[in-house]
Nucleic acid binder design. Structure first.
Length: 570
RNA sequence: GCUCCAGUAGCUCAGUUGGAUAGAGCAACAGCCUUCUAAGCUGUGGGUCGGGCGUUCGAAUCGCUUCUGGGGCACCA
């Protein structure tokens, strides 16, 4: 499609006597929102000044002089816009042949050239159950990971587990005090979370408890064997529980190096900053100034111990050395925007310029409840485990009600239920806060995951009934596809690569989600208006089945990128 | 107080680098299953794009200002 834009730009240029830069023309060419206005459009308004003539006159003159070719079939002038219509036979053939040839590879590009990109995402805090916020993080991070993989990068997923810090001193204290009151044989994570909530409340009231917690953590840092064992226990049971969720979501990480991993790697941060003479004392703490518009970045607390920024900095150094990354992408809540601005500033003293430039923070909005913010202390947290179960049960119920004869109802209801959840958290702009609404989340009609999955299932069903197999699509007469429903769908299918690029550039999975809705909607219109299998014209039927098959490929590849499965039946 | 983000239909949201008549879904109402799966499709109603000023041939989009909501602002992560 981009080639066509170039062709149009040079066609316009040839009609002009004045000296105009081709890039100025190329950059102005746009795709009209309304299909009636052609495939490409060139507004002549800015030429009006240069040529000292009215836009309409200019447009008409260009139109007269323009030479039509294989690609362009028609040019029209409307209100000073030059509207170009492409030869749709060419367009349809090029797009569909491309999809059919590449198949599951359609959408894959080699822009990345195998370079490394590190994705820091999910990153739950040990000893707390996985909640909606983590879920949004995980789902966005995983999609971005896949998007960049699609571009040809070597993507590395890091689960930067929150497994270090004062909270473990507290948890150890809580465990010592309350462990006999609990049953640790199941739901360990909820037990630990409960203990944490209780001990936090206690520490807030009683300074002695907080002091004990601080001591505990210091002991843990110093290698107290008993505490280390406890810490390991907390970490293991938590990861086990998280893995269960990652497994359901199909998420895998290349590294689980959390905060504790960097415990012995922070000296170099302090040393380098000291050597460069940027570490300054301020109110007892050691800080680095990061400009007038931001408060300084604290690197050492006044008691001499490190802080999360120190660990983030150590991680940047480690990741630069280990992965030689082109980009390091951090997916976190938007409340950490300032923190990452500060950390990235300080990183300028620690890593080479090419690594500094690769640091990207991708913030996402809060997930809030109708009643306000989620708070573990107030018990208003939505556990993702429960939500997944709700979604699976709902899809199972629907499958049973519809009396579908399916082989594996467990698998299907999981694919559909989880798909609905994941899609729900990817479909809107990542920076927007989401107001959690259970009914809305468990809605399966309209612009939802199941709608897209359902569309995919329909494509599969037609393909099966048609009796065609892949190899039948070698010699097809694609120029028989001339209905507007067919052409619009094909053109949309042809946008896939561009959509992926845009999603990557903006770090915005919702662009792909929205695109898949568009595809599904166009296919459904086609499906309702044209009965693919009912024609006697075998060539036409085959061409249409090829279109149906291509649609299935794009939906499958697209859902794959978003981390959503494609059921075989529903 | 300073700073970042958001404000589009009753609700949830789209709206590429400024472009042509601001679009979907949900909800409401009216249709479409002896026809490739109705988790679908078609139609109707619904708008001061928070307000104001400006830049421009042209603004939901850019600038200034103001209102509303949310986040952040030093030893939590």
């Amino acid at each position: 499609m981009e080639d066509n834009k170039k062709i149009i730009a040079s066609c316009i240029l040839e009609t002009l006597d004045e000296n105009v830069d081709i890039n100025d023309i190329y950059n102005k060419i746009e795709v009209p929102k309304d299909k009636k206005n052609g495939d490409f459009s060139y507004p002549c308004f800015n030429l009006a000044k240069i040529l000292k003539n009215s836009p309409v006159n200019i447009a008409n003159k260009i139109k007269e002089k323009i030479v039509l070719n294989d690609a362009i079939s028609k040019v029209e002038v409307v209100n000073g816009f030059l509207n170009f219509y492409l030869n749709s036979n060419n367009v349809v053939e090029n797009i569909l042949k491309n999809i059919l040839t590449k198949n599951s590879e359609y959408g894959k590009m080699n822009i990345g050239n195998g370079k490394n990109i590190v994705f820091d995402y999910s990153s739950p805090n040990i000893a707390k159950p996985f909640h909606l916020g983590h879920f949004r993080n995980t789902v966005i991070g995983h999609a971005l990971y896949n998007i960049y993989k699609e571009l040809g990068y070597n993507t590395i997923g890091i689960n930067y587990i929150g497994d270090w810090g004062r909270q473990f001193g507290l948890l150890i204290e809580g465990y010592k005090l309350f462990k006999d009151e609990y049953d640790f044989s199941n739901n360990v994570l909820e037990v630990l979370s409960d203990i944490y909530v209780r001990i936090s409340a206690l520490a807030k009231e009683d300074e002695n408890v907080m002091n004990k917690a601080r001591e505990n953590f210091k002991e843990l840092e110093n290698g107290n064997e008993e505490y280390y064992k406890l810490w390991k226990f907390f970490r293991e049971v938590s990861l086990k529980e998280y893995d269960r969720i990652y497994d359901i979501l199909g998420v895998k990480f290349d590294s689980y190096n959390g905060e504790a991993f960097y415990n012995d790697k922070m000296d170099v941060v302090i040393d380098t900053l000291t050597k460069k003479n940027v570490l300054k004392e301020s109110r007892g703490a050691k800080v680095v100034e990061v400009g007038d518009n931001m408060p300084p970045c604290i690197v050492l607390k006044s008691n001499g111990s490190t802080i999360y920024a120190t660990r983030d900095l150590a991680a940047i150094i480690y990741r630069a050395k280990t992965y030689d990354f082109e980009k390091a992408i951090y997916v976190t809540g938007s409340e950490q925007i300032l923190h990452f601005k500060q950390v990235f500033e300080v990183a300028k003293y620690l890593v080479e310029e090419k690594y500094q430039k690769g640091l990207v923070h991708v913030p996402y909005g809060l997930v809030r409840l109708k009643t306000g913010r989620m708070s573990s202390r107030e018990g208003t947290v939505i556990y993702i485990k429960d939500l997944i179960n709700d979604a699976i049960n709902k899809s199972k119920e629907i499958l049973i009600n519809k009396n579908k004869e399916v082989e594996d109802i467990e698998l299907l209801s999981k694919q559909i239920g989880v798909g609905a959840l994941v899609f729900n958290y990817l479909k809107s702009n990542k920076l927007k806060d989401i107001l959690f609404d259970l009914d809305e989340t468990l809605r399966f009609d309209g612009e939802t995951g199941p709608y897209i999955q359902y569309t995919y299932v329909r494509t599969k069903s037609i393909l099966e009934k048609s009796g065609y197999v892949e190899s039948d699509f070698e010699n097809i007469k694609l120029d028989l596809l001339t209905n507007s429903e067919e052409i619009e769908l094909v053109k949309k299918l042809g946008e896939f690569e561009n959509i992926i690029k845009r999603a990557a550039q903006d770090f915005e999975p919702s662009i792909i989600a929205k695109y898949l809705i568009d595809i599904s909607s166009l296919f459904s219109k086609f499906y309702n208006n044209i009965k693919v299998l009912e024609t006697n014209n075998e060539d036409l039927k085959k061409a249409r089945v090829a279109l149906v098959y291509s649609t299935g490929i794009v939906i499958k590849n697209g859902l794959n990128i978003l981390g959503i499965e494609t059921p075989s039946k529903m």
